[in-house]
Amino acid sequence: MQMTLFQQGNSIFHRFDPRAKILLLLFFLVYIFLPFGLIVHGTVLLLLIIASAVSTDWRDMFSPIIAIWPILILIALLTPPFYREDPIGITIELLLRFTSISYLFTLFFKTTEMSMIILTLRWFRLPYNAALVITMALRFIPYLGGVYHQIQDAHKLRMGSAEKINRFYQKIRSLIPVLTSVMIYAIKTIPELSMSLEHRGFGIPRKTSRLRVYKSLKNGHKLFTHMGISVIIAVIFILTPSIFN
């Protein structure tokens, strides 16, 4: 099971500080919804496509569109009947908006490691327990995914060739014992996991060690620079629409 969208790379987006990157993500998320007109939103999408091409393999440049093409067709077909004034313009605006949101998130997750995202959220004061839950869940997702496939294979073997499942409802029905087995397997790990946590000192009021940290002194200037760049980018994008209007 592929656990993340992250792709290794050395682009400017990979090297950009995740704390500044997350703020830029939020800025653009709001910006995309603001009524700046088709030219501005089209430019934003074009820049995001270019950024996507620069950040990872250029052949993956259109992968977000490939993932969302059914909804783009639906937007194109179903939006015009809902609007009497300028249906084409609104349809294009919605197409640009949805595609931009998809590119924005894909770009962020393709260029930011999951561990760095959790570290960044901790830096933004995410509680320790919440970060621990996310980290443990990420550890257990591939493991339980593997367990699911093992149990599914075991059930298939038990059914034999004469009872091979072909029909849709039979496939759905055959899922119930598999899901039950996986759930019991997962539930049974809870007491063991909690005991492991307690043995490792969870709940004891003392400072815990960290594998990865933001070194404030070493990376202080980097964070300052990247935050500054983010603010400049935000200001440029806020001022740009007034040029077109």
């Binding site: 839950v133 990420l138 339980l144 899922l175 996986v182 809870i190 007491p191 996991l193 307690e198």
Partner: peptide
């Protein structure tokens, strides 16, 4: 115990993600 709460939430989070990811039935158009 807090450890039990954290563990149960983490495991059920993982199970929810696995159930969401592994079994996909192509119906909803969007």
């Amino acid at each position: 115990s807090p450890a039990f709460k954290v563990s149960s939430v983490a495991i059920l989070t993982a199970i929810t993600a696995v159930f969401t990811l592994v079994v996909r039935i192509p119906i909803a158009p969007t």
